[in-house]
Design a binder for these strands. Structure first.
Lengths: 205, 205
DNA sequence: GTCTATAGTCAGATAGAC
DNA sequence: GTCTATCTGACTATAGAC
């Protein structure tokens, strides 16, 4: 998963790669992989098209690099669930972290949504491998808490799906949410207490 | 919203249009609008590419027709919420209907997901118009029940978002759900009692 | 390392025979 | 109504000058 002993990058190389990935994130997250063009990415990065392809072998290469780079950050909050912490507080902390990520990083959320919708062509091995292990660990912790009577019993994996679905919905379906709520509403601010109440009621003993 | 007094279609016209829309649904729901090609649609429909374009003016036309045709069906369960019914049962019926739609019509779910992700270029007026009215009506009914103490008080629109998010997640992110659960699980079967329990706990008085 | 120019490919849409 | 053939534009990727 880590660097395969790449030659070290010069400062300018690092900076341009970062510019390209940043621009590509904006473009891919709006139109998806097929909807994005290298021209748009180059424009967003402030570089010429051939120069983009000097740093990355292909459009596919950019996309794959983005996905794998961002996956760790995306899963970090779940890894931080502490088996020795207070059960309800650990879950609430995870929910809040996930909602905050949807608020701050909607582009990343949409990037992953596009990838999963398409059948996760670039992430298949990770879905059944690393991701599954991380979820298994979290599910085991939750199950232990439920067995000890410290959380109300629910299917732990579906509980996790519910957290993903409810928090990412505000990023992925933001247009719809805003259209329904109308002006003068901040979906993310309103979602905070709503989700807080929801998970306290489901998991409280 | 209804037919604009089109000339009547012959039986063969109707059949071919249906074939095209059925094939296009399969293609668009996998790859999104930009990822789909007319060739793929023609192949799925069992027709030649020019013949597809004989029945529809453009790829965009097919897509727009699909979306508007399916929107009514998609929103039907919410329209059926009955203000004179039993509050909790009305909500549970809606949740079950929505989950059943995700199970039976995952392609439709993904088609809408792609459209919203892209910023709903074909649905903007509907999102702020018809959809909003339907949601407003449902939210008013829910709010009334909460005011009468027949449902636990929660923000009604976010309650509706939660139902959309939780049920559609099983269709839109099906690959991920299956990868995490592993073989031998039926996500939709397991989701039924999970969501049942969840909404009873949130809304029970 | 970065650019201009362009090769090669693919997809949307049309023309015209049958 | 349906087909083959084709036009046109857009896009990825490369070649080669600087």
């Amino acid at each position: 998963m880590a660097d395969q002993s790449q030659p070290p990058l010069t400062r300018i190389q690092q900076k341009n790669r970062d510019l390209i990935l940043e621009g590509a994130l904006s473009v891919f997250s709006v139109n998806g992989f097929r909807g994005a063009t290298i021209d748009q990415i180059a424009e967003a990065a402030g570089l010429s098209k051939p120069n983009v392809l000097y740093y990355f072998a292909s459009k596919d290469d950019i996309h794959k690099t983005l996905l794998t780079t961002l996956l760790d950050m995306w899963l970090a909050p779940m890894v931080r669930i502490d088996p020795d912490g207070d059960p309800l507080e650990e879950v609430m902390t995870y929910v809040r972290a996930k909602l905050e990520m949807s608020r701050r990083y909607p582009r990343e959320s949409r990037l992953f949504a596009y990838e999963i919708l398409q059948g996760a062509p670039h992430l298949t091995e990770i879905l059944g491998g690393g991701l599954r292990q991380i979820v298994d660990r979290a599910a085991a912790i939750l199950q232990g808490w439920m067995d000890d009577g410290r959380l109300a019993p629910v299917e732990p994996r579906h509980l996790i799906f519910s957290i993903w679905a409810l928090t990412q919905h505000y990023a992925d379906f933001e247009v719809q949410v805003r259209a329904v709520l109308g002006p003068g509403h901040d979906p993310f601010v309103e979602a905070g207490p709503f989700l807080d109440n929801l998970y306290r009621k489901i998991l409280g003993v």
